[in-house]
Amino acid sequence: MTVLFFELKQGLRSTFWWCVGLGAVTFLFAGAMYPVYYDQVNVIKPMFEAIPEVVLRSLGVNLDILFTSLGFFSFVMMYLHLIAGMQGILLGLGVIGKELRLKMMDFILTRPMSRSQVFIQKALAIWVHLTITWIIFTLIAWLSIAGFSKEPIDWLIFANLSVSLYAIQLLFMALGALIATVLRKLKSVIGVGLSVVFALFIMNLMQSIFEEEWLRYLSPFQWFERGYLFVHNAFELPMIAMWLMVTVGSLITAYVVYVKKDVHAV
């Protein structure tokens, strides 16, 4: 458990700040700001209706559901997904690729521990960090919505929205792990990680604008479409299949590459 405890300890501070960031955005936008916004709905609604629909879609605004507490939360979720994706990929790249970036692969792989153990313990450490963040996020979101909502809440929709954030965290963590294992060199975790997240986020915006169905399969942020969640109170099966395939596939590939690859001198 040496690597697990080491990575848990090393990531504590960063996880604390992710919790603060995600929690603050959630509390501010899904909680504290909602009453102000709700009180002004008669002023705000016509303003939104004047904006072209394509612009609203690209901003993740769905006017049918926007003016409820959960609907507003689901709008904020689009940006919370982005933050969760960043945390996932930065942890995947940063923890699995830590020794690659620091040119310390020789160090970690000459300890009396199999490569398989090193990878699994690192992946477990990331999972713990992500889960802690998700639990804290869910608690803050729940308290914020319960505390500030003006109408009864369908908590199943809330639960689905919350789970979608966890799924995004895990998906991007798996992508980060995959990239960290296939690269020969890793100079900047932030550079690589944010490029991937923003590229996929932009693809999500493109899909919102052009509404090409096939594009949805290529943009992970679309896999947990909030409008569908509201109407059907469930996830879309084909998108869940995509999530499962990409997340599990990336993790298994990353594991195999990590265990088998030649580690060259630096």
């Binding site: 090393q10 830590k98 620091l102 040119k103 310390m104 020789d106 160090f107 000459t110 300890r111 009396p112 521990m113 199999s114 490569r115 153990q117 001198a265 630096v266």
Partner: peptide
């Protein structure tokens, strides 16, 4: 590899460490 590494000490030509 795992069992062998328990009894091996290794010093590479260049050394790098955690931040």
């Amino acid at each position: 590899a795992k069992e062998i590494h328990q009894e091996i000490g290794y010093l590479p030509s260049e050394v790098f460490y955690y931040d």
